[in-house]
């Protein structure tokens, strides 16, 4: 089986998932910036909390949402939560990674199998992506919502 990197149309699906999430959940659009490939010259400033979903089935790789505490706290507040513990922040960052990945199945179909999210505080997401050097380089989709910066990082290969 051969691994095939994503194309531009595939990447746009993730940008649309970001826009759709903030619009539906908060009634506000997030600004989604141009996606770029992550490498040693363009490292990602990892956020305080990271949610990672592993892909399997007809795809291999992972989808990671990385965000600062401030963005997630604001989001929890908008979702009617009153608990702002680390546990809640890890929960919501994982759930967002899950929602972005699930939304991508509109485009990729059910050959894209996704795991329940794993969550990390700090820069553990970087280690998870660096450990998978057999995949195509990950790309990042930077976004800004209410002045907070965050990123969706996708490292996904189609198995053909």
């Amino acid at each position: 089986m051969k691994a095939q990197a994503l194309e531009t149309a595939d990447i746009e699906v993730f940008s649309e998932a970001v826009t759709h999430f903030f619009e539906t959940t908060c009634g506000e659009k997030a600004q989604v910036r141009t996606a770029f490939l992550l490498d040693a010259r363009a490292p990602l400033p990892w956020g305080d909390f990271n949610g990672i979903v592993e892909a399997s089935g007809g795809y291999s790789g992972r989808i990671c949402f990385s965000a600062p505490r401030s963005l997630l706290s604001h989001l929890l507040l908008r979702m009617g939560q009153a608990d702002f513990s680390d546990e809640q922040h890890l929960d919501i960052v994982g759930e967002i990674a899950n929602i972005f990945s699930g939304r991508a199945r509109r485009h990729f179909g059910d050959r894209l199998c996704i795991s329940p999210p794993r969550t990390f505080a700090g820069s553990a997401g970087a280690a998870a992506l660096a450990a998978s050097a057999t995949h195509s380089p990950p790309f990042a989709i930077p976004l800004c919502w209410n002045g907070y910066e965050a990123s969706l990082v996708v490292q996904l290969d189609a198995l053909v």
Binding site: R106, D110, I114
Partner: peptide, 8 residues
């Protein structure tokens, strides 16, 4: 569910 495809 977040799974957005019709088959699911």
């Amino acid at each position: 569910s977040a799974l957005s495809d019709k088959m699911t």
